[in-house]
């Protein structure tokens, strides 16, 4: 980030400091009036998110900051992405593929959505297959999409058995060794991880990102 000019540094700061109005105004000006390279603006957004994630881990930021940051990035992304003219090799390389969904019987998705967003912004290709996902849908998606990590989400205690059943089905299909499985949700702890046979659990979205980065051999 050392080679940022003053304006670029300002955008990163506005985003990281949750100054939404200022950040959006500046990003729009850069993209629509001054012809800034859209990929460069998105890169600045990722830089800002690195700061936000770090502050979250350090206990300075909390869920509301992640949500607002997500909202700001979505707005800027919607302006920047149509402006991208694809040149060969210009597309940033993804760190890995993560399939994510809420297990069957459970309809909750707030936590899952935040995890999916944080993974996406941190360079993973994410496929979110929604809530109340039957075991077979996970298996079909895994067969066609070949993810590196499968994330199972659940808020209710019934999700313990749904997760266990889903992971057992991966075993039966002989696919369990081809990807890592992480679980998360309000009631998830080490007892549940051991019960379900998942590789790891996380208590928040940044932990999910760190798990995936570690599995992909990236420094967390």
């Amino acid at each position: 980030m050392g080679d940022m000019n003053e304006q670029e540094g300002q955008l990163v700061e506005f985003l990281a400091e949750m100054q939404e109005d200022e950040a959006l105004e500046l990003a729009k000006r850069m993209l629509l009036e001054e012809g800034a390279a859209p990929l460069r603006v998105l890169e600045l957004c990722r830089n800002a998110m690195d700061i936000v994630g770090k502050r979250f881990e350090e206990g300075e930021y909390f869920l509301p900051e992640l949500v607002l940051a997500g909202e700001m990035l979505e707005t800027i992304g919607a302006i920047a992405k149509p402006l991208i003219k694809h040149a060969p090799g210009e597309e940033p390389k993804k760190l890995g593929k993560v399939l994510i969904g809420t297990v069957h019987g459970d309809l909750h998705d707030i936590g899952k959505n935040i995890v999916a967003f944080m993974l996406d912004i941190n360079g993973f290709e994410v496929r979110d297959i929604g809530i109340d996902v039957p075991v077979n849908s996970f298996i079909d998606e895994i067969n066609t999409w070949q993810p590196d990590v499968v994330g199972l989400s659940g808020f209710l205690t019934l999700a313990f058995d749904s997760m266990k059943e889903t992971i057992a089905a991966f075993e039966q299909q002989g696919m369990r060794g081809k990807f890592k499985v992480m679980i998360g949700g309000g009631q998830i702890d080490e007892t549940v991880r051991a019960y379900t046979g998942a590789d790891a659990f996380g208590v928040n979205a940044v932990e999910a990102v760190n798990l995936c980065k570690a599995w992909m051999g990236e420094a967390a």
């Binding site: 939404e20 509301p64 949500v67 607002l68």
Partner: peptide, 11 residues
């Protein structure tokens, strides 16, 4: 709603 309220903390 959860995300609406979190944004209200700023907006």
């Amino acid at each position: 709603g959860a995300t609406g309220m979190m944004k209200d903390l700023f907006r």
